[in-house]
Amino acid sequence: MSLASEVAESSQHSGGAAARGSREPVNVLIVGVGGQGVIMVSKVLASLCQAHGLQVKQSEVHGMAKRGGSVFSHVRFGKQVWSPTIPKGDVDILLALEWAEGLRWLPQLRAETGIFICDTKRIVPPFACLNRRQGAPMRYSRETPAEVIAHVAEAYAVDATRMADELGNERAANTVLVGALSTAMEFPLADWERVLAEFVPRKTVGVNLEAFRLGRSWIEEARRTAPDTSDPQGQGLAAAVVPSTVRVEIEAQWCKSCDICVKLCPERCLRLNSERIAELTDPAKCTGCRLCEWLCPDFAIRVHLQPAAAVA
């Protein structure tokens, strides 16, 4: 019966949610964008739990989401797990590899005790940039990490991508977050590292272990001090949203009526006039993408972008 006692012991220790008692399984929801390594993280976690004799159920949505779409993976472990999916609002730990994905799944988090660990990396989906005008506002979450953290019981906004990049491999960002996740559970450090080394590509074991330790020490540091809520990326996003006006200058003397600008303009707002010189038909449509300027072999087109404030 040593196994059973071990199971009981592990499940008691595992998870920040262990305080709720060892009967319920621990629910971890791992979310991100296709290609970031969500499935890898959940495999590591599931394998680790299995090695500790716990029952694990994992279910995921991927496939269509491959490379760029929304990916999530439910991992439930404990003495006995009945359903592979986590009921709404019962997530103990939400690990998000991308900022907006983290916000998308935040309502699933257990209100009082849930732990939210999120990368501040922003991957803007194409449908958030439907307005092609230069400087047009993106339809991407505007909440800053500080605003979000204030609403969650225990939240950490980690700039894991930058941390991994500084270690030399941006793709190890998910491992930084695994490191962060490891602090919320009480599995031995050596077991984490052993399982991690099994799952990452052999050539990158070194950088991944470094990333893991970095993520772990970052959270420990954040626990000791007040969480760092400054977000350079968030400010960058705010600064980028400066609507600009476009002026297209066409040197009629140099235009040779080759028609390239007219046919390649994505907004179809150029034409050849009666003298077969390029002209802008609809300035309101022009987004300032500069394609006409780049492709004009005669240097006849020049696109001026000015911040709207300067013009007004």
């Binding site: 040779k256 080759c258 390239i260 072999p297 006849a300």
Partner: peptide
């Protein structure tokens, strides 16, 4: 304006 024909890629 340069001597290239209309639409010549060399200008680009």
């Amino acid at each position: 304006p340069h001597f290239l024909c209309p639409g010549c890629g060399h200008g680009i």
